[in-house]
């Protein structure tokens, strides 16, 4: 990862900007949301590979910063929401797309199903993913 950052620095102009946009592993909540309310029914389990990747990315940026390659100018956290009509669709998506990254425990899935079943007709199930966006400026 550090080598990639060195390469990016090489191809950036002298006043160039690097935007790092990525999810942070943070036991993302599972919610049942309608216009009337949002209820957290549990949290996903971060799996070791994803946590290790997350930590490695953070270390790589810290190393690039310590080398003086980039200066951090601005940073914020925001939520990137994945939303499904029903819990079964969420489960199917996670098994297909997030295998090895996040685990939906059966107890959390059951809780989502039971909460969604008695919620308002417009209720959906959602996972707000914690996102980090950082603006780095290439140093001279």
């Amino acid at each position: 990862m550090v080598h990639a950052l060195a390469e990016i620095r090489r191809v950036l102009q002298s006043d160039g900007v690097l935007i790092d946009l990525r999810p942070l592993e943070a036991r993302w909540p599972v919610e049942v949301a309608s216009a009337a309310s949002t209820v957290e029914v549990g949290r996903l389990t971060d799996l070791p590979i994803a946590v290790a990747d997350d930590e490695a990315a953070t270390r790589a940026m810290q190393e690039a910063e310590s080398h003086g390659w980039f200066v951090r100018e601005r940073e914020e956290i925001f939520s990137y929401v994945y939303s499904w009509d029903r819990p079964s669709e969420m489960k199917e998506f996670m098994e297909d797309e997030w295998e090895g990254i996040e685990k939906l425990e059966e107890s959390v899935y059951q809780s989502a199903q039971s909460t969604w079943a008695v919620a308002n007709a417009d209720a959906r199930v959602q996972v707000p993913v914690k996102m980090l966006i950082t603006r780095w400026k290439k140093t001279e």
Binding site: E7, V11, G16
Partner: peptide, 16 residues
Amino acid sequence: ARHLPFPHEKFDIALL
């Protein structure tokens, strides 16, 4: 990204 096939200082913005 480990081997970017581009010359030095080609881009204004890099987006990861």
